[in-house]
Structure formats: structure tokens, C-alpha cells
Design a protein around this nucleic acid. Sequence first.
RNA 1: GCGUUUGUAGCUCAGCAGGAUAGAGCAACCGCCUCCUAAGCGGUAGGUCAUCGGUUCAAUUCCGAUCAAGCGCACCA
Length: 562
Amino acid sequence: MEQKQLVAQAIVAATDGQLSLEDVVAKIEVPKSYDLGDYAFPAFALAKIYHKAPQQIAPELVEKISLDGFDKVEAVGPYVNFFLDKKAFSLEVLQEVIDQQANYGDQDLGHAGNVPIDMSSPNIAKPMSMGHLRSTVIGNSLAELLKKANYNPIKINHLGDWGTQFGKLIEAYKLWGSEEEVKKDPINTLLKYYVHFHQVDQEQPELDDEARAWFKKLEDGDEEAINLWTWFREESLKFFKGIYAKLGIDFDSYNGESFYNDKMDEIVEILQDKGLLQESRGAEIVDLEKYNLNPALIKKTDGTTLYITRDLAAALYRFRTYNFVQSLYVVGNEQTNHFNQLKAVLKEMGYDWSDEIHHIPFGLITSGGKKLSTRRGNVILLEEVLNDAVELAQKQIAEKNPDLPNKDEVAEEVGVGAVIFHDLKNDRLNNFDFNLEEVVRFEGETGPYVQYSHARAMSILRKAGDVSFDQLVGLNDEESWEVIRQLSNFPAMIKRAVEEYEPSVIAKYAIHLSKSFNKYYAHTKVLTDDEQKNTRLAMVASVATVLKESLRLLGVKAPDEM
RNA sequence: GCGUUUGUAGCUCAGCAGGAUAGAGCAACCGCCUCCUAAGCGGUAGGUCAUCGGUUCAAUUCCGAUCAAGCGCACCA
């Protein structure tokens, strides 16, 4: 970053202030190929000012630029290419990483402001599928990233524990369920009832009325309904927590939809007071015509609430409780309309803070090209995927490193890490069709590749024993230069990932850093006794630190050996 | 139909908010372990950046249209 300023200043000085520093900074780019330097300034913008061809201007600029801070400055066609002083720059970067350790890359974008994150949010009485994994791992990574940028994230698991579906479940249980069967295998049994319900109600639509009646009872506090619901909820939560433990993710709150049951009346009252509520086809709605959105359904004909009613209550509750600077919702892109409606209704209610509500959408996972659907039985169980991945990691270890001391622990970290990393490495919005082989791949651009790179670095450091990094020297060979440049990019990557709510920025970065390090590793023997040995070790230590930190920000463990 | 997201190599994706010969990974083929973990490194082959227009000195990148796909469009969440 500062290097870019240095380049910009040199250009501004050489052009006698014809261009502002800001303009020049905006124009400066990083050449695609190393032999074209570290930064480049295209002289096209000057062609009009000087009435000359940019190819002619570039060499003239080079004449006027002092070499202070650069190894070389040269003109190639219309470009002025800058080569940084490798020795000075590498020393500076390594010193910084060694000094700051895991704090390297920390920023203060958030000034400690609260940011509730609505994430994971599985539905009670249903198993967790690959679909929930996305919200969980993206939310978790955003929380870590926000923390690094000095925000105070609050991870809220907005459990899907309320709604008509529980009427259906209770109705199904009453018709076909047995207590013993549920106790044996809660989730799968409840799921079975639920799926069965949807098969039967195709021909017996009156079941839906029964189900709605049960949900009505639930909202009205009927004892039998509440008892069943509480039981289903507890069993589900036990099961979910097992999976979260496996993923290494925890939450600050498990306040799901039901938590807002007693907070919706106020919302309805406010809407009424402000004259926003209208009756339409027997239901209560808020018209959103002027936002070019469908009306928001606040209450159904039978007086029960809907998803958006609860989300309105939740939004207000979160604002009052956390006084947030931003409020995030990590929810699939198929719900974009819902969040547009949510924000619009809040805006109509006069809440300016609705502008700080951000839906963080992500793409859909399909299976065989088809949307996952619990009711139709088309699910990919997260638990199974994780188990498969860990098992595969075990095989891999048995084959490649049979003497590894803590095999099971490492297999867990690698297997689970592979699944998480796979989910985070691509753009959030990309859809993907589930493919087990792809998800648990350990070679190429994968989580295990990054973990392996880290383990290699740690291995060198172990072999090196005690070394001090007090007397570092500059490095200027080609292979280490690639690594140094990557290391220096880390803080900028953090910033971008936070600003774009995009963990994939960090995943991609980790791959690039790993690549440059593996290349270096193949080319240079680190543990050779010479005057640069300690500096090389400092670089290896820096790579290990930054890789481990990158993985941590993604929610992936970095074993020292694998 | 309306809204929205997407369209880059056989497959999966990058391309840093316009720039110098479009990059990786898988898959294919060929090399590299007497040397810090070969879960690695190197090489070969593979593309009219969906199509057509527009803005610009410069467009894969910005704008518009068309085509194709995903998702959403009132009593589910």
C-alpha cells in the first residue's frame, strides 16, 4: 500500500503536478508478469495533456524519476514499470509479520461496533443438510473477519423453531407417531413423520387445516402443543450441537423464531398506529407498491403470524439489544425478496437503521441438478458428508504419513477442513451441484493443500530448532520475492473480504500464498548454513503465521504435522 | 410475464472495481524424491471471454438489447 504511494509520488513529481496524487494512485496497476515489475503506470492519460504518444512520454518520465526505493524503473511501450527495492521491502515485510504475529493484518474498520449475524438457522426436527453448512460457515468466517477488523460480531443462530410446519409435525405425530420411536432416533423419526405428512396431504388436503389449527394452538399457548414442541426442540438442539462441535463453531445466541412469539404484538400495534396495516383478502398486509415489491403479509386469515412478522420483531429486538452498526443475515439468495420486504417495512415504520441491515446471500446447492428439499426427501446430510471426509483423511494419512502421532485428531481437522474450505473458496453467489468427490478432494486448490503447506513450513521450523530473528537481512531472489509480495498483501485482503462480506477472498489468498511458498520450497533449500539462513527461516515462520491465520479466519484448523 | 443472480478452456472456477501475449485447479500426456513431508514442483496440450450493439486512446471488465440457465413472485420458511 505504502509502496503504491511511493510510486504515485514519483509519477506526480515527474509530471510537475499535472495529475493529482489520487488520480495517479487510481491508475497504478500491478503488471501480470513479474518481468514487467511490481507496479506500473500507464501513460495514456498524459497523452492528451502533453499532446504526445504515450510510448514517447513513458521514457521521458523515467528520465525524471529518482531510483530512491526502487531497484529499477523502466519504460516499456506506453508503461512506466517500477521494480521495488527487494532487499529493503522484504526486510520491512518480514519484520512486520515477525513483530505482529497473528495480529498481522488487523484493522480498525469497525471501532468496536456491534454486528449481529443471523446465521446457520436450521429447522427444528429436520436434519442439517449441506444447505445449512453454507450459512453456518460463511457466517462464522464473517464473524472472525469482522473481529479482525475490530467489529464486535454477535453470532445468532436464528433457529427455525416456529411456524406452520410445527402444526404439521404435531399433527403427523398425533396420527402416526410413538414416543418410543422418537426417543430412539429423534431427528430421523420426526423427519419421517414430516415427509409422510406431505405425501398423505397430497390426497387429503384437510390435513393442512388440522396442521394450521395445531399451530394456532401453539401460538395460543395450548399445553399439549407446547409440550410436544418443547420436546422436539430440545432433541433437535442436542443433535445440532453435536455437529457444531464437529465444525468447531459456536454461537452467542440460540434465540430462534419462537423467541419472538411474545414480541410480535408490539410490531402489529406499531404498524397499526402508523396506519400501515391494511386488510386484503382477509389477511393483514403492508402495501409495498412504492418499493415495487409484493405486499408483506403480516397476519394470515386465521390470525397467525408469518415469517416476516417474526423477522420484524427480531430486527427491532436486535436494534434495541445491541444498538448495532450493522445487522447481517447470512441467508440463501432465494430469500432476497423477503429481505427487501423486511427492510422496506422497517423503513416505512420510520427506522433509519434499516439501511444498516444487510442480507448476505449465497448460491444454492443442488443435488443431481435438483433443489434440495426435505419434504421430498432429497437431502444431503451434513453429518454424513463430514464423516465421509474424515474417513477419507484417515485413509490418506495411513498411506502418506503412517507414523503421525495424533492421527485421529489430524484426520478430523483435515477432513472437516476440506469440506469447510470447499464451501468458502468460491464466490458466495455461485450455485453448485453437490459432488462428494469434489468436496473431499485433498489435492490442488483445496483446504488440505493449504494445511499441507503450513505443515511443511512448521516442519522446517522444527528442524531449525531455536533461532532468533533479530538480525535479518534483505532477500532479493526471485522465488522469495513472490512469497514476500503475497505476505505484504494480507492486510489488503482482510479489508476487501470484510468490505465485500466475502470469505472467498481469504481462501483464494491462502491458496496463492501456499502456491508461492511451495514453489519456493521446491526451489530453495532453507536449512543451508549461510548469512541468509535466519532470514529465510523468518520468511518460513511468516508464511506459517499468515497461513494459519488465514485458515483460522475461515474456520479451518491448521495442524503442525499431517 | 415481472424481478433477481449467473453465462470465461472438456469439467470446476480466478481475473484485484477498463489497460501490455486471458489465468489456476481437476481430467489427459510427459518429467522430478541418495536433499527441509511427492497431500508437492515443473512441462505439453486445451479459449471467436454466450450473441449483437454502444461508451472509451483502450472493454472479459462499464451501459443497453437478445439468447440460455438458476432463484423468487400473498396466507411456507
